[in-house]
């Protein structure tokens, strides 16, 4: 009886001690460490990558490549930008970046006056190097250090040749571009026209559209009405391909047309996979990111001055739908 009592009491004591200890441990142990105070006294390069199209597959890859390279080179990099080609927001981000006196800016080129003003005057005033990536703006207009991205002229040529090989040296082709007339689109068009000019039997129709979805649909409708015997379409701006194909699909069979585009649109990959696009030009976004950061750091650390103003070109490949 007495022994049992003692055992019970000791057990009770042990249990109480145990729970008290456990809760005390939880209550006094602070496993949530505050972020360490910045220990890095040596200045790391602060780089910003600014794009107009955040969270699209193409630009995500550019960002990933850039971050990877930045980490490797010991620079800190942030990806800023606007969503869905919001130019106002994009330019504001660019201005903030300049006013924040970052060490270098990698930016998706925008062929507008305001962009050029910012890069030419503001950035130059603060002495911030700018590299355009993916989409170029000529050096004379933007004072960019260099361009990293595809050779858009070559890409245009390749796409035109792909189309010819699919369609044959005869037919009507619609080249649909947006009304922004951006530099990179002009380059693509130039490449395509160069190729098509050798084939007199291929007639090209050039059309422009505003880049809202409704406008694209309306323009496509017009084109289909005006040129009912069209054999193929090329969406020079990849972002309008989705709306365009949707309209074509409403009017007839998409498969009957030869449709080509580029990979830097938000819908490009899924359109290719579903077979609505017959082929497209695939660029190397990760490489662009990596290369641009690499070059910028080289420039900053005076390893490579000046940079090649003509730009550093990345690979372009043809991607065909598997049908």
């Amino acid at each position: 009886m007495r022994k049992a009592g003692i055992i019970t009491l000791s057990l009770l004591c042990i249990i109480l001690c145990y729970f008290t200890y456990i809760t005390a441990q939880k209550a006094f142990q602070s496993d949530w460490e505050l972020p360490a105070a910045s220990t890095q006294k040596e200045e790391r390069y602060r780089l910003v990558l600014i794009t107009q199209e955040l969270e699209t597959p193409f630009w995500d890859k550019v960002g990933a490549g850039a971050k990877e390279q930045a980490q490797r080179d010991g620079a800190s990099l942030e990806v800023w930008g606007s969503y869905g080609k919001n130019q106002e927001d994009f330019l504001k981000k660019l201005e903030i970046a300049i006013q924040s006196k970052v060490d270098g800016i990698i930016v998706q080129g925008l062929d507008t006056q305001k962009f050029k003003d910012l890069t030419k005057i503001k950035a130059a005033f603060y002495g911030i190097p700018i590299i355009t990536v993916a989409n170029d703006v000529p050096k004379a207009e933007s004072l960019r250090k260099t361009y990293v991205g595809s050779d858009q002229y070559l890409a245009g040529e390749m796409l035109a040749q792909l189309m010819l090989s699919d369609m044959g040296p005869k037919g009507n082709v619609v080249l649909l571009s947006d009304s922004q007339k951006e530099y990179y689109q002009e380059q693509r068009l130039k490449g395509m026209r160069e190729v098509f000019s050798d084939y007199p039997n291929v007639k090209t129709v050039y059309a422009e559209t505003a880049d809202t979805r409704e406008q694209v649909i309306a323009t496509t409708q017009d084109l289909l009405n005006q040129y009912p015997d069209t054999n193929g379409f090329i969406a020079v701006n990849a972002n309008i391909a989705g709306a365009m194909i949707q309209e074509i699909g409403r009017r007839g069979q998409v498969q009957l047309y030869h449709i080509y585009s580029f990979d830097d649109g938000s819908e490009s990959i899924s359109l290719l996979k579903s077979g609505k696009i017959d082929g497209m030009i695939e660029q190397s976004p990760e490489m662009m990111g990596r290369k641009s950061v690499n070059l910028l750091i080289k420039w900053l650390s005076n390893e490579k001055v000046p940079l090649d103003a003509d730009g550093y070109l990345s690979d372009v490949r043809i991607l065909k739908a598997k049908d």
Partner: peptide
């Protein structure tokens, strides 16, 4: 300044 907001804070101060 800490490791997490280092970049933003530097920008902030430069602003």
């Amino acid at each position: 300044k800490n490791t997490e907001n280092e970049f933003a804070l530097t920008n902030y101060m430069n602003l």
